[in-house]
Design a protein around this nucleic acid. Structure first.
Length: 418
RNA sequence: GGAGAGGUGGCCGAGCGGCCGAAGGCGCUCGCCUGCUAAGCGAGUAGGGGGCGAUGAGUCUCCUCGAGGGUUCAAAUCCCUCCCUCUCCGCCA
């Protein structure tokens, strides 16, 4: 959620940010609505103050004098209720619109609306050529008996997979390796709940805008998270952190569930885009002036991991119009997938500034003892499913076996999947 | 699933329908004092919104005692609904 003060002082900032996202919102009308709801609230409060003032004298009065003051206070109470109701209604109308507005875009997020408008800011250089025809992860994985999507379809439907054998073990190696690497940078490992309340999804900005991507469990009024960002962020909801606790850095591991609504026909082959996958996610709570640096810091962590795994990659700065609601700026790392012959997203890191913190009411005491909103920053450490298939495709041999990346061998206990 | 207890400020804990956003304690902050430490003394210490004012200082005001309704001139206090936590029993990875 945005700071309402934007409407009163920096309306043009808000307007231009919305424009960069390709949204047409009548900002002036919102400002008018905001002004009138405050006006009504002030009127209601005056009535209430008068009523309370009058009410205080009642216990000291007797007889007819008491009766008349009670009557008078009663009238004020009625007027107050009416006025308050009107103010509440305007508040609701205003809030309903306000919560749907996405975060301000960072000036350094590129112009543009689409994935293609992202700007490459870095790459690992030319992609090394294989001296044989590359196969894709599904062909390789099926042949090796470590990926089974057909039986997964029987059990669960499309966009699911069984991961088996050494590939399953490789997941554990990958996760533990990533956790150790992040531990070097003082990220605290966390296994969060993956079923959360509505408030956690609202607070992180996934509700209401992305609600159609979220699985729900109606019987218990809970939702399956699409990323551990949700429980990690909501973990500190309604808290006032002390300044010396910051930055707080977590490395959360969880299964992620995504409905992938509206992606029919897209990435239907194999387990590249599935309804369920595991992920190690970095999440930081920082002071406001630190979030930009923290965003770069998380990108560095991602680059360390991706380059240690030896994937060719490129880093893109995502276009303003392609950002999620809560992000002001986002970097994606795209790894090279030889089987697809192109770069695909393997990590993503976003600076959500105070957007989530405001919704979740996560604050800290600054040096003057004032409560201020923290900034939150998130980033993928390892999206396990995609990383596994990036390994399969990049480490495949002419014989159809898959070598285990050097850094994972001590964790895996084997060197090759065959 | 069954039975019971309880939700008040960072924590503990009191609270006759008005003098209660709330005693007391702990903790914390600042100051004084003690050669260190501990103790002692004094002061301060919930959050959110709105008005006036310059998006300052200040000042006025409203809301919040798990949440939402209700009764009343007036609710932490009375009534209703819901949520959550804890304990015991049962079942269970």
């Amino acid at each position: 959620m945005l700071d309402v003060a934007l409407l009163r002082s920096d309306r043009h900032v808000l307007a231009s940010s919305l424009e960069r996202r390709g949204l047409s919102v009548d900002v002036d009308a919102l400002a008018v609505l905001d002004a009138s709801r405050r006006e009504l609230r002030a009127q209601a409060e005056e009535l209430r103050a008068a009523q309370k003032e009058l009410g205080k004298s009642i216990s000291k009065l007797e007889g007819s004098e008491k009766e008349s003051v009670i009557a008078e206070a009663g009238e004020l109470a009625e007027e107050y209720k009416t006025k308050l109701g009107e103010a509440d209604e305007l508040d609701e109308r205003f809030q309903a619109q306000w919560v749907t507005l996405p975060n301000l875009t960072d000036p350094t997020a590129p112009e543009g609306m689409e994935e293609e408008d992202a700007v490459e800011i870095r790459s690992s250089g030319p992609v090394p050529a294989l001296d044989f025809e590359a196969k894709d992860h599904l062909d390789l994985g099926s042949a090796l008996g470590v990926i089974d999507v057909e039986r997964a379809a029987k059990v669960s439907g499309s966009r699911f997979g069984f991961i088996k054998g050494k590939l399953a073990l490789l997941e554990f190696a990958l996760v533990r390796w990533a956790m150790d690497a992040l531990g070097e940078h003082n990220f605290e490992p966390v296994l969060p709940p993956v079923l959360v309340r509505h408030s956690a999804l609202y607070g992180t900005g996934f509700f209401p805008s992305d609600a159609e991507q979220v699985y729900s469990v109606p019987a218990d009024d809970l939702f399956l998270v699409g990323t551990s960002e949700v429980p990690l962020a909501a973990m500190h909801a309604d808290e006032i952190l002390s300044r010396d606790e910051l930055p707080i850095r977590y490395a959360g591991f969880s299964t992620c569930f995504r409905r992938e609504a509206g992606t029919y026909g897209k990435d239907t082959r194999g387990i590249f885009r599935v309804h369920q996958f595991d992920k190690v996610e970095m999440f930081s709570f920082v002071e406001p002036d630190q979030s930009s640096d923290e965003h770069e810091y998380l990108l560095e962590r991602e680059l360390e991991l991706v380059s240690a795994l030896g994937f060719p990659y490129r880093v893109v700065n995502v276009a303003a119009g392609d950002l999620g609601a809560s992000a002001s700026k986002k970097y994606d790392i795209e790894a090279w997938f030889p089987g697809q012959g192109r770069y695909r997203e393997i990590t993503s890191t976003s600076n959500t500034t105070d957007y989530q913190a405001r919704r979740l009411r996560i604050r800290f005491k600054d040096e003057e003892g004032k409560n201020r909103l923290v900034h939150t920053v998130n980033g993928t450490a390892v999206a396990v499913g995609r990383t596994l298939i990036a390994i399969i495709e990049n480490y495949q041999t002419a014989e159809g076996t898959v070598a285990v990346p050097e850094v994972l061998r001590p964790y895996a206990g084997f060197d090759v999947i065959e």
